[in-house]
Structure formats: C-alpha cells, structure tokens
Write a protein that binds this DNA or RNA. Sequence first.
RNA 1: GCUUGUGUGGCGGAAUUGGUAGACGCACUGGACUCAAAAUCCAGCGAUAGCGAUAUCAUGUGGGUUCGAGUCCCACCACAAGCACCA
Length: 800
Amino acid sequence: MYNFKKIEKKWQEYWEENNIYKAKDDYSLPKEYNLVEFPYPSGVGMHLGHIKAYIGMEVLSRKQRLEGKNVLFPIGFDSFGLPAENYALKMGIHPKIVTKENEANFTRQLKRAGFSFDYSRIFSTTDPEYYKWTQWIFCKLYEKGLAYKDHTYVNYCPNCKVVLANEDSQGGKCDRCDSDVIQKEKDVWFLKITAYADKLLEGLNEVNFPDRVKIEQENWIGKSTGAYVNFTVKETDDKLKVYTTRPDTLFGVTFMVLAPEHPLIDKNKDKISNMEDINNYRLEAQRKTEFERINLVKDKTGVKIDGLTAINPVNNKEIPIYISDYVMMGYGTGAIMAVPAHDERDYEFAKKFGIDIIEVIKGGNIKKEAYTKDGEIINSEFLNGINNKKEAINKIVKYLEEKGIGEKAIQYKMKDWAFNRQRYWGEPIPIIYCDKCGTVLVPEEELPLKLPELKEFKPGPDGESPLANATDWVNCKCPKCGGPARRETDTMPQWAGSSWYYLRYTDPHNDKELASPEKMKYWMNVDVYNGGTEHITRHLIYSRFWHRFLYDIGAVNTKEPYQRRTTIGLILGSDGQKMSKSKGNTVNPDDVIDAYGADVLRCYTLFMGDYGAEAPWNDQGVNGISRFLNRIYRLADHVVEGSNYTEKFETIINKTIKKVSEDIDNLKYNTALSELMKLVNAYYEEETITKADFRVLLVLLYPFAPHLAEELNEKKNLGEVICKSSWPKYDSEKVIDQEKEIAIQVNGKVRDTIKVPNDASKEEHEEKAFASEIIKKWTDGKEIIKVITVPGRIVNIVVK
RNA sequence: GCUUGUGUGGCGGAAUUGGUAGACGCACUGGACUCAAAAUCCAGCGAUAGCGAUAUCAUGUGGGUUCGAGUCCCACCACAAGCACCA
C-alpha cells in the first residue's frame, strides 16, 4: 500500500502554501459559487454526513478550477444555538471557549480530508463582527414593520423551556429534544414571513431546485384561495367572520364552529348560559398534546354554545354555533361555516351531534358520507343548476362582495416566524424598552450589541431568559430620550445566523457593510447549494425570505439566493439503519483516514451509490476503493516515455474524459469513478502506457483523489502540478468506437449479434444480419413481415 | 388520510432516456505465485435445464401499448420521506 500519510500531508501543505483554494476578487474571470451548508461545530467533531455533504461540491470545485473558473468554495461555522449551549452546560465550560475549540478541531479535520475550501474566508456566526449584521438585518425588518411583538399562543417546548417556531416543531415534536410541544401564551417576537408567502412561491419559478424541494416548500407555504363570509350573531351586534374555500356551498351550512380560543366567546360570556361546560372543554382541549389531537381525528368533540345563534347572510337561516378543537385559532379566522354534506370533518361532527345535513351538490350519497367532488348545485336558490365549481364560486363571491357580506380571500398555512428564544447563546435582539418611548431599536452605530459575559447561563425555571440576570447589561439608557430603559433579554433563534451567511462569504471581513455590493454582484447567486433534505422547510425557507427582503430594500441585487439546489442522501450504518451512537453502527471518518487515507475516504463516499440517495456503509467496499487507488499507484511502473496517447487507448480516453466531465457536472460521481476504473482496467491489458495516457488518468482522478494524483504526476515527471494545470478536453470524433456490436432480434428477442462499422448504412446492417447462420435458423420457413433497423442500435426481424 | 419518491443478482448499484438488463465495485468459487499467509494476477459468477453450443424464465404484482418495455399507460402491493382535523 502506498504511503498515503506522507503523500497527503505533503500535498495539503503545498496547496495551502500556493493558495490554490483562494477565490480571487478578479471580476474579469468567469465565476462559480459552490456552497455547502456550514456545520454546527459539535464537540464530537465531523461525522461521515459532513464528508458526504462536502465532497460533492469539493469535486466540482476542483474540476472547475482546472477549467479556468474562479471558484468560491467557502466554509464557516454556525455556532450559535441550543446544542452549543447544552454542550457547554454539560462540560461546564463557557460556550464561547467550547465553540472556538470545536471550530479549530473541525478546521483541522476538514484540511485533513483534503477539502479545498477557501479557509481564508472562515467566520463564525458567533463572531460579533458577523452578528453585527445579523442584528442590522433585524433592525431593517423592524423598521419595515416585518418584526413585531405579540402576546399570543405559541409552540413551547417544556423540556428545553423555549419558544419554538412552527418550523422547529414539525409533527408536534421539538426539533431538538423530541418532546411534545405545547401551546403556551407568551410575549413573542415574530418576523412577518407570511408577508413574503407569495414572493417565496413565485421565486420558485426562477430557480433550479429538485421538484421534491419545490413541492415541499409549496405545501409548507400552503396557499389556498377562497372567501371570507360575514355571518351575523343574532343576540349581539357582532359579526362572525369565517374563511372558506367553498363559498359555493354556502346554502348547505347547518352549523358554525369556533376554535376554543375564539374571542367571541369571552366577549359574550354574559349571554352564554353554559359557560361552565365551555370553559371545561377549553381546558381539556388545551391539555391535549398534538399526538392526541392527531390520533383522535375521527372522534370529534365539541360543545354547543347556548345563547348565541348565527344567521346565514344569504338566506337568513338561524344556525347553531359550537366550539371544537378541530378548528384552530391559528388558521383563517378561527371560525368555520360547517357544510356537513360536503366536508368530511363537518360530516362526522354533524353525525355525532345530530345536526341537519343539507345536500347542495348532486352526485354523492350524503346518507353514507360527505361528497367532496364536483356536481350540479341544488337547494341553493340563484346558484341552482350550475355544474362547474369555479363558475359557482365566482358567482357567489361576486354576490357576497356586492352585498357587502363577504369577499375573496387568500390564506396560507405558513405562520409568522416566532423569533425569540429564552436562551443565552444566541444573537441579542437589538431592542430597548423605554417607559416613555416604548419599544426602541438599538442605534446602528451601537451594533454589534454584544452578548454580556455571564457565568450562569441556564434558563430560568419558567423559561425566563438567562440574560435577565445580567442586570448591568439589561438596564440601559433609552437611545431616544436618555431615560432609564431595559434591554430585550431574549436572543435570536439558531436559524438567524444561517439566513444570510452565503452573502458574507463574498466579503467576510468587511467592517462597513454586510458585504460590498460589487463583490456580491460578482459572486451572487450561489450557483450550486448542496445540503440535506431536513432543511427544505426550515433554513431554506428562512434564508430565501431574508434574501428577498434584502432585495426589496436594495441591499442585494438578486431576488433569489440559490440558483440550483442539490440534495444528499444519508450514509446509513452497515446494518442499513440510520447511524447512531446507541445502535453502535457509527463510523468515524478520522479512523478511515488513519487506516486508508483521505483519498480512499473521499472516493468511497462518492462510489457508494447515487449521491442523492441514501446508502449503507460497507467496510469491504472501502477496501475495494483502496485496491483501486493502489492499482493506479502500481500502474506508474508501466509508464514509458510518450507524449501521445497509445493508439489502442485513444477512443476509451476520449470517452472517459467526456463521461467523467459530464458526470461531475451532474453530480453522478459513482459512475464517474466506475468510468475511471474501466480506464485503469484497460491500461492493465497492455504492458506499457505512455506518459500522456497516465497523465490524463491522473488529471481526471484529481478531483476525487487529489493527493495521489499530484504525487504520481510528480513522481513520474509528467508535467506541471495538476492543481495548476487544465482539465482535459475530448475530441468528439474520437469518442465513437470504430466498430460497434449490434443486437439482432427476431420478434423482439435477441438471437445474435453482429459487428458493423460505426457509419454502416441500414442496408449493411440488414445484409449482415441476414447472413447470420443463427438468424437463418430462426427465420427459415417463416414469412418475414417487416424488418426494423435502427443503425448503430438494433435490427429486429418480425416473422410469422 | 393526503403529497412525493423508491422497488433491478447474495450486496452497493449501472443501463446511451423505448433498443443486447445486470456496467463498475463488493462478496463468493476455482486456479497461478508462495514453505505458508497476506498482497497481487488469471478465470467464473441472475435462476432453471444441459457436458456443451444453446433454450426457457427473469427488473415488486397483475394487465395494457409497441416490432421491441427496467424505462410509457392503468390497477394493485411493499417500503421511505414530508405534511397532517388548514375549513
């Protein structure tokens, strides 16, 4: 086995000394910006997932540099957030110190794996010089009315004692600790991402994201169109406003349902005779965990509100009002008009409570179930006879608008981004509360608002932020009136720093702006952004929102940050299960590098399978890659003088250049490597190969196994160091084999093969095909109906 | 429940986009080298029948379109991911 330890260290030093990783601010060069999701530097160091996530862009970047492109391939650290703090709590060291140690360790590991990041651009989200601009963006959002404080029910993790955004509590579980999330009434800072819902949807049209990513984001945003309808409440002057996507069924409404928290109830409690029942129900609903709510879908519960009656504005019918937890305060208006004949949930509720069911759309059997499809409208006065849903909706909405009892409306599932966390290790929110002036921004010249040094940074028992203890820091002067004031003690969520980091890479040490406009103009957009699927409805949405906001205020010049998004598949344990410490199926990349070298680790993670699909780790597979690289190492002994390709290899070399080049661009690394293996196998068929033959193999190998490629190139004196050379070009005339093997079918079944020159005519194919003894055997005595010949592909003879 | 994927040898996976299914690698079997082992090299390797040339079957299941289907269409099954009472 070759001495990879010596070789790899040597070349890593050479590359770094020669600055080959550095992106140049030379705007005349064609640029490529390849981005990977920067890591949270955990104490245990890098795992295989990091390697796989980075190696894809790494190979692409190394190739593009040889193609003469100015490549920005940066790395940094996303070091704020709960995990860093929990780790620091556990180890009893200040998060700042722990973070810096971990970052240093990560950097060492990255270099050891041979990653060609531009290390001169490293920064951490925890650097005050960086989070100054995170805070600045918050200020801009606040100035534009897109950051606001509200006292409301929010997702809250009782274990982490922290408020969570919707995106942090998908499936009703806390993203961090998997505890059941509860709804808690809190003071919450929100970012008005819903104001950008449409822009986020539109933006998807101009980017190259996989369909899956687009669909998931569309679903998460969850746009629906319908109408608001104002019902009157008979006993009061109040209107009861509902949102519906089916205003065409308005004549089928037989009851109304309010969310348990709906304000109409408390407002009219004097008029309600069963307030006690209602309050009991509300308490019970609040106690239910998300899990129970989901699993009790079929079992509808609720209470009728005695004393309040709604009136249907289209026919003045009196209808009862219920409360039920199947209606949620957070969507629409927190109240619905129930049409049991044509909505499954309303149907179940009506059946359970014995409420009338009025059919207004023909076509189903409402005695058995709700009918939710299209049909002719009946029992609906002026809508009767319409057979088309769209038409009916248009007509009724027009009617509602004319009468002033309703209007067209749009709703989104996405909610505003709950933005404050009751934690120490995050960016302080630059807000000051003054008794006289109210809520005031920290002035721009005072940014960064630095985190105060604190010894005790555990959150309070009821979720108070640890920053509240830093009294010297909390008590301050109001920037407006100079009077006594207090600082906001909550910090930003961990997603804040990662929402704009790709901009900072273009100009990481700028102390005057978040990045210089010229540099952003040159480098943006990110050309390829590679990362995990878990961020599709989190980081990827948030950063698209911030970027679009920055565009709207003129801070950046593109609407979307990422031109192309690619996703990576997980590396599973050798048992096919997700790698986890508890299962004992983890593999430490450092161990692999120790045993086989970085080049083997790099190639193996790419050869395992499709880059976008998950695949199990296999130690013997690693060994196979090691064998492959050693085979190349030994191939050096077969090299003889010669500046031309060996004639026999001309075609395969050109083919390989073509395939490897295309495969890298398409992120199909596994087949690129198999192509290189084929070339090596072909070389071994001859006693000798020329220097030119060997050199082209090494250059193609270089993005994958750069250390070995450079070493052999130097050892055999084949030319300039590869990192300063150029990517080989292929001759498109030479990628075609001179002679091709063609299958001959009889009735669609392959019976024989023939060899024809690559430019053979149709007639030549058929002539040769019919000359075959085997084909004669299959066609003799049969009637030939037709012959299908695709030159270069196939000859199919149809007989009867 | 809804949405989106995926399903190919013992295993990871290829397949020019409708044209010789199983490239490449792993594992395995036999052989060479060696005192021996490792490493390396050579040969074989979907299933069934046959000494063999060869034949039949075979890409989750069942149907269809086509000269020809892993690839297109319909139905079903299994697994994975995402969403989840969104009115």
